[in-house]
Write a protein that binds this DNA or RNA. Structure first.
Lengths: 133, 133
DNA sequence: AGAATCACTATCCATAAGGTACCTATGTAT
DNA sequence: ATACATAGGTACCTTATGGATAGTGATTCT
């Protein structure tokens, strides 16, 4: 039965021409996850985001925010002052998504140890480079 | 307050050296989403997955499955027959995750129209190439 | 005999991620 | 007066990654 696989909306993310597939593609980015999670509890400025998202480069931050804005998940507000001030906040749609993405983040944090162990076991089974006494 | 941002597990996905950050990185792939969703209701063979995940290349399928296996989300079973028979199924950890990823998939399918509209509006505002009467 | 199934593997190329440097405009410090 | 800091970017370049194409070996189907 495939009926369980199809959403009741007529969209099917398994088909690469389906709009929902491109949505999934857009969500499949660690910076999207983290940016949306970071904005979850309120608006932030560019610099605040840059500090919160450890390791993000200005280019990736701008790119990610522009994409989220384009897709209607983030609202960008510019204040005409010097030095410039720009604030970002989630739209309603974005907040809706943020709930789910936060769950994924929590899952990642909760199960990180298990996965770390699994990886260690995998490289021990495979790599097998330790000099056994 | 940052307290709400930190999980009760001592892991913080915002820090790029945290194991949970690498877990998030691993999850940030459309093929991971779709593969885990596809295996949600039972074990499948390589070929069955290849047909279900429209557009995936054999390389990406193998790569994705190997990664999921390495991280303990998928179990791989080989039958020593000719022609070869290999089956994949979710581990308990994988099934646990599949619930969340299915929600993301449903969200993508449910909100695809809104996002499509937002994109159309964005390119209309920006592109602005239509000859206005 | 030739094609198809099956589960991969190897190779190449285009795209995307990522890093560094620089730009705008102002106020402040020296 | 020159230099620096702030803030929010853009431009340029290098390196990973994703994706396309073709091939492997053994067997069954037509």
């Amino acid at each position: 039965m495939d009926s369980e696989d199809r959403s009741p909306f007529g969209y099917d993310a398994f088909r690469r021409t389906c709009p929902s597939h491109t949505v999934l593609e857009m969500l499949a980015s660690k910076w999207v996850y983290l940016t949306v999670c970071a904005l979850r509890r309120g608006r932030l400025r560019n610099g605040e985001l840059a500090r919160k998202l450890e390791g993000i480069t200005p280019k990736m931050l701008t790119q990610t925010l522009r994409m989220l804005e384009r897709d209607g998940l983030v609202r960008r507000e510019v204040f005409a002052v010097i030095p410039p001030r720009v604030e970002y906040e989630l739209t309603e749609l974005g907040q809706n998504l943020a709930g789910l993405l936060s769950q994924i983040r929590s899952w990642a944090e909760e199960h990180a140890p298990e996965i770390k162990d699994a990886r260690a076991r995998a490289s021990a089974d495979h790599g097998e480079m330790g000099a056994a006494p």
